[in-house]
Design a protein around this nucleic acid. Sequence first.
DNA 1: TATTGTTATACTCTATAACTATA
DNA 2: TATAGTTATAGAGTATAACAATA
Lengths: 145, 145
Amino acid sequence: MKPSSHLTDTSGYMLSKLGQATIEQFAQRLRPLGIRPKHCGLLAAIRHMPMTSQLALGQALNVVPSAIVTMIDDLEALGAIKRVADEADRRRYAIELTEKGAAMLQQATAIAQQVDESILAPLGKSERDTLRQLLKKLSTGLSQA
Amino acid sequence: MKPSSHLTDTSGYMLSKLGQATIEQFAQRLRPLGIRPKHCGLLAAIRHMPMTSQLALGQALNVVPSAIVTMIDDLEALGAIKRVADEADRRRYAIELTEKGAAMLQQATAIAQQVDESILAPLGKSERDTLRQLLKKLSTGLSQA
DNA sequence: TATTGTTATACTCTATAACTATA
DNA sequence: TATAGTTATAGAGTATAACAATA
């Protein structure tokens, strides 16, 4: 038998729909913090590679320079990050995560866990673990693309 | 131990990223057909509920009227669907899938299967089946929201 | 007065490209 | 001449709201 003779039964179709639903729910619950999902990825990247230049962050996230500047502007206005002048190269700013930014990332992570609870509700505990492992495998395949 | 103490390890985060990557790849391979991913969902809905009004299709897909009209315009220009005048209610058009539209849906389905092959490459056969079953469970939970 | 379809419009998002200041 | 950052601008996508025809 064919694995998925209907378009809407393909894994890709379901992944797209689920991903979209997830991000919408995440965005909604994130609203009180004044940020959007894209800012969260950036916050995580900043914590992971502290004191990095804006363009380097952009390359790591595959985001064009003008977009990174806007996001950094947003986060700076919220006090989540600071632009620290680089004395060696006065064109550069090193991006530093503030305490407030770290707290914000922690809150965002908690919200993401709540969204997981909501989205994964139809699955039992072991099923969730299985799903997470499978998604992890697929995600590592992504970064090579 | 906590299931996912990092934001980027949550299932929701991975679902979002994978869904986005999937839809981008789908869009790219779909380009030669002259349509976008959103048109495919509409084509599938039209086949599933033939001779339905535009607004009813919009409600089924959770799409606003103006957007449905534009998509129907696109598909009609490609010869994939026809607006059939409803003689009983002259405000309405019943949307009919043409042979060309059916062929287009079939091509789109084949492309979706190719995308599945590409995205699911890191998984073995039984893992893919497991994933599909889990995604199916989650997808049925979606429509209730 | 409500409903189907349509059009006009505004808004958001994102990317491209031009510009500055440094190197 | 090249690079980090910034700003200006244009494009696509989507939603809101006004509108015409019909019920």
